[in-house]
Design a protein around this nucleic acid. Structure first.
Length: 488
RNA sequence: GCCCCCAUCGUCUAGAGGACUAGGACACCGCCCUUUCAAGGCGGCGACAGGGAUUCGAAUUCCCUUGGGGGCACCA
């Protein structure tokens, strides 16, 4: 399809932890590159010194690696088009900005932030469109010299044509035309010598030979400015494909922290699988056909195509992600799952090993929606003493005394049992329920609480077998004592 | 306020003029299975925002309205 080698990039700004929205953009770029056999590049746009966050880049790298989105050029891997940190490319931007001034496409502006703020304030008051009034565009040489003599460090602004319009093409949104009157003379180079996003982005995309720009929808309005810049430089304009935004589950605005996890590290911490995140993220804003929901990484690469991307914004659905995560957990090899669960139990204070987990995993695999849930499903295996309400030991539609009798009979029955396996435990307990004149479900409910401390737990007999006779008897004793004390 | 974009079940979406009695998935509700909870199976609920126009025929094309989103910085 493309006539030039495919080179795409993500250009995150290190101002915070890696966001799912950025991850989705990264995924689409990565898929596009892999599908077309092109290059996927990571470029750090660290041109805002005031918002710089030192953990952002390490977090970005860890997150991309965790998701399995490998990059061909960028931080830690280098490449022929570096450096890949914009803060290390300052001389470049200054050079190109100066060139634009010399050629008459840009000019130096000496207006103070205070004047600009006052200007905007007044425009607001008069209900005019906010924008720079181009005061410095028409400075005489003498005026300019005077400002310079005052020691003011100017910014460089683009000289946007006063009339006419700019038209550009977007692969998803089609042809868009904007009147130049809607644009003001944007700042290219800040007074601290750093470029703005617009300049740095255009310069780097050109120098790095980026073929397709795929980024969030929020950039659509600034494309005309960039096109004007490309034209001023006489450079070829890359192919644009803006991606629909991910909205909050409520649909009110962009996805933000208030709605739950939004940072990749947070999803990771909550026990989401990278393969589920990838599959889920791929399906928000993109589809392949009318029925396929589950895609392996390889299938995604094979099927990914810009024509499958929707042009309307999509809401983020935690329910759907959770379902998909559960699905992927169920598909895991039990040994693999055991290994992935270990850190979550350790985090909760249970120093278990994967080997200890292997027999337990089959009991919980189809119940887990996230890895973190392993704690609530299995903590009773690792506790020496259970804590729960004694009243939970009273069976459904039974009295406390009847329940106590039942528990004592259970203890007697199990104490004689050899071997002690799930298969040998069940029949005598069913027979016991009969003898007691209660339903098996009633009896099992009591035992479940006694053995696990919970009303909801993995399958009872398997649990007891893993616990072993000794620990089961101890817990029954504890339960008998608690219930006895409740009664008396 | 101005500019740009978007519009199919609650949500993610299929649909590129007749194949639509509008398909799938999540969620939800039943039933089955069942020691709890899950998983699984079966079934159900549920949408083309409204109005014009084009056409023999419109979810699909055009216009308007409405609604939603994004953008208007020496932030990206």
């Amino acid at each position: 399809m493309p006539d030039k080698p495919v080179r795409v990039r993500i250009a995150p700004s290190p101002t915070g932890y890696f966001h799912v929205g950025s991850a989705r953009t990264a995924l689409f770029n990565w898929l596009f590159a892999r599908h077309h056999g092109g290059k996927f590049i990571v470029r750090i746009e660290d041109t805002d010194r005031s918002r710089y966050h030192p953990e952002a880049v390490p977090d970005l790298i860890a997150s991309l690696r965790w998701l399995g989105l490998d990059w061909d050029e960028g931080p830690e891997v280098g490449g022929d088009y570096g450096p890949y940190y914009q803060s290390q490319r300052l001389a470049l931007y200054q050079h190109y900005a100066a060139q634009l001034v010399e050629q008459g496409h840009a000019y130096r502006c000496y207006c103070s932030p205070e004047r600009l703020e006052a200007l905007r304030e007044e425009q607001r008051k008069r209900k005019e469109n906010p924008g720079y009034d181009r005061h410095c565009r028409y400075l005489t040489a003498a005026q300019r010299a005077e400002y310079e003599a005052q020691g003011i460090t100017p910014v460089i602004r683009l000289k946007v044509p006063l009339e006419g319009q700019t038209t550009f093409h977007d692969l998803l949104y089609g042809t868009i035309t904007v009147d130049h009157q809607m644009l003001d003379d944007l700042v290219l180079l800040k007074s601290d010598g750093y470029p703005t996003y617009h300049l740095a982005n255009v310069v780097d995309d050109h120098l790095m030979e980026i073929s397709h720009i795929m980024r969030g929808d929020e950039w659509l309005p600034s494309v005309p400015k960039h096109v004007l810049l490309y034209q001023a430089f006489g450079w070829e304009i890359p192919v644009y494909a803006h991606l629909p935004l991910i909205l909050a589950p409520t649909g009110q605005g962009k996805l933000s922290k208030r709605h739950g996890g939004v940072e990749i590290r947070e999803f990771r911490r909550q026990g989401y699988l990278p393969e589920a995140m990838i599959n889920y993220l791929a399906r928000v804003g993109w589809s392949y056909d009318d029925k396929t929901e589950i895609f392996s990484r390889e299938e995604l690469i094979r099927y990914f195509d810009l024509s499958g991307i929707s042009s309307s914004p999509a809401r983020f659905s935690y329910e759907r992600l959770e379902w998909m995560n559960g699905y992927y957990i169920r598909q895991l090899h039990p040994d693999d799952l055991a290994a992935r669960l270990v850190p979550f139990l350790q985090e909760a204070g249970y120093p278990v090993t994967a080997a200890e987990l292997v027999p337990i995993v089959p009991l919980i695999q189809e119940r887990l929606k996230t890895l973190a849930e392993v704690v609530q499903w299995t903590d009773f295996f690792f506790k020496s003493v259970l804590e729960y309400e004694a009243s939970l030991l009273i069976g459904k539609n039974m009295t406390a005394t009847e329940s106590l009798v039942a528990l004592r009979r259970v203890r007697e029955t199990l104490a004689l049992l050899t071997p002690f396996t799930a298969a040998t435990i069940e029949p005598p307990l069913r027979a016991l329920a009969d003898q007691l004149g209660i339903k098996a479900a009633q009896l099992f409910g009591i035992i479940r609480v006694a053995v696990t401390g919970k009303e909801v737990a993995p399958p009872l007999f398997e649990v007891m077998a893993i616990l072993g006779l000794e620990r089961v008897l101890a817990r029954l004793d504890q339960a008998i004592e608690m219930l006895d004390r409740l009664i008396h």
